[in-house]
Design a protein around this nucleic acid. Sequence first.
DNA 1: TTAGGGTTAG
Length: 727
Amino acid sequence: MHRSSIKQLITRLHAQPPYAHTISYSAPHSNALVFSNMLNFFHSQMGAQNDVVTLFAQMQKSGLWPDVFVYPTLIKSVGNEGIVLHAHVLKLGFGCDKYVRNAMMDMYAKCGPIEVARQLFDEMCDKTVADWNVMVSGYWHWGCEVEACNLFDLMPQRNVISWTTMITGYSKVKDLKSARRYFDEMPQKNIVSCNAMLSGYAQNGFAEEAMGLFNEMMNSGIQPNATTWVAVISSCSSLGDPCLAESLVKMLDEKHVHLNYFVKTALLDMHAKCGSLETAREIFDELGVRKNSVTWNAMISGYTRVGDLTSARELFDRVPKRNVVSWNSMIAGYAQNGQSAMALELFQEMAATKDFKPDEVTMVSVLSACGHLGALELGNWVVNFLTKNRIKLSISGYNSLIFMYSKCGSMNDARKVFQKMAARDVISYNTLITGFAVYGHGSEALKLMFKMKDEGIEPDRITYIGVLTACSHGGLLEAGRKIFESIENPGVDHYACMVDLLGRVGKLDEAKILIERMPMNPHAGVYGSLLNACRIHKRVDLGEVAAEKLFELEPQNSGNYVLLSNIYASRGRWEDVERVRKAMREGGVRKTTGWSWVEYGGKMHKFIVGDRSHARSGDIYCLLAELRKKMRNAGYIADKSCVLRDVEEEEKEEMVGTHSEKLAVAFALLVSEAGAVIRVVKNLRVCWDCHMAIKMISELERREIMVRDNNRFHCFSSGQCSCNDYW
DNA sequence: TTAGGGTTAG
């Protein structure tokens, strides 16, 4: 089309809103081609959309209208504005140009609606391969697998791009087998198609397959480029193999590979995940001003992975442009390193900033933290937050909900979430099974395992640990035996569970034989189970054998000394008790302090024996005295096992706050003090006095109170404890 | 003209 005719068209457009505001045309006085080339340059080299738009505006100001070659670029860059452009294209008569037409269709295919793309596609009578490819790619983009496949099958001719589109399509839906099928079938491969397959593997956790393909590529003489290296390096990261990391670094060096920004970031992450945090930090520092949020985040999670929360936090506080991932990395860092309270605090800070919307990843960490704290009240608040903020959950999100409810003892809620899920994975089952196991619901756990098999989900290592634990806690000896025998290659943990099961039901000699026949070296868990069984059944001979092994395996674990000492005590062998205690003192082994917490008023209150740091400490001790008096009057006398401290005069401060609040907090302290006994004696019946006190409070309160000690969760309602067997 | 790139979670 000649320039003068374009001028005429545009002049006409002036009179027709809404186009009038877009175009201010005057006589051309500069070279349109120069601008066009610049536009193309900005778009293809820099990916700088804003610059394209600015330049476009500039062109208009200068009175230039871009020629036909610029249209594809423009349409890609301006997104929805492209619809206006589409109108221009048609009015200007460029609709028949095959490149413009293809780009236009691609715009609709990528930005939607896909139906418009299809309409354009169907209207074409001289379709090129590129048109077919754009359409197939568009269908994949919108998750229309069937349509994509049908169209691919109908293609009159295919090129390497058509095949590659299918490979990436299947990779995106995590169907790597189909992706590989297309990869193997394609008549010709190039570096891009290899990279598509390689990245598919890398992004879906098939690191070994990625490494395999990389070796094939190297043997077939295809030269890797930066994209290849990024995929290979990130596969190595997920394998966490330091030797592989070292050989990759060597290879990069030998081949004199230019390390671009992406390769460097991938290398940073690889070093952080393969144990060389110093090297990762060197790369991080070398990047200087070129660091972006991804590099910062990778470094932060590098530190949290090794538990160095101080360095992680120091970086987090310095990130110039935080994004959701920065917050998620730090919150997950706290949650995974036992700092649940800090994780929740940071989450609240994040929610308060309003600049960042917490996403599913954030909530997974937050729910995990609630679970670890046993904070049901807070957990329910989080569930509310999810609905209010319309945060959509995938399987892993629902799994963390199951985890939270299970850890908080709300097995009914955990089950409800599980039932509501449209799709479940092995972790969904494992989380619920483990929950049932902890609470001794053996048959429920077993039922779930059969259900998962029916649904075609294979039980894994964790499933069997869960089910065996459930049998152990539920006293299901025969069922446990059968399951153990059905495990193909039982691991050391499965043996530990079986020893625990046999030991708890009193079959100690059988447990001993099982240990002797183990094909691998037993770890501390195996002997620990045996020692615990010896404590339950007062077996000194076997207990000594187990303890001896444990002192070798974990000399600093005070629990083993205490258990052995208690076995002696149960038989009245006081000299041996003293001998063990002396060995403990001389070995510098210190008892770990007992602690517990309660959730009250949405806050977590943590208590250590003898600790006075709690803000309500004065009240607590006052109330403790009252309780003690009541208990004595009721005929319950606190003995040495249950430390009920005398209240000192100066602690009798004036009461502040409501009575119920004080009761709840006092209750916590009481359990805390019993907690020390629980941990040491491991026989909860000695805490009878505490139990009575707790019952009294919950009766008085006439409401549910939830408490967690180190290992278990208790729910008291009108004086009834949900874990009666526990006490 | 259409295909391939790094970080976070159970």
